[in-house]
């Protein structure tokens, strides 16, 4: 999951919450929005409590990127 995704998820969640809190939501769209919000909450919570980065992979990438260091 990329950075933009969870930022977008967060923003979208905020928007839905705002709509619900201000009663701007219609009963028709409520179930859809609630479902979506639940999804977004899951995405955000996952982002808070997990990580996908792998040190070994990064180290490998770093060593392969080492060659063209002549400019420095």
């Amino acid at each position: 999951m990329s950075e933009i995704n969870y930022t977008k998820a967060f923003d979208e969640l905020q928007e839905i919450v705002h709509e619900i809190e201000n009663g701007e939501i219609s009963v028709d769209s409520l179930s859809k929005k609630v479902k979506r919000a639940a999804e977004l909450i899951k995405i955000c919570k996952t982002k808070l409590t997990s990580t996908e980065e792998d040190v070994n992979k990064i180290l490998k990438e770093l060593s392969s990127a080492d060659e063209p260091e002549a400019e420095v």
Binding site: F10, L13, Q14, I16, V17, I20, E21, G23, I25, V27, L30, V34, A37, A38, L40, I41, C44, K45, K47, L48
Partner: peptide
Amino acid sequence: KFHDFSVPVQHAEEVLIKRVPLFL
């Protein structure tokens, strides 16, 4: 920074759990 992110998410959860049934 995590709190700043987490608090609204928790709030959103609360809204879903409490406010939505109330709303209904």
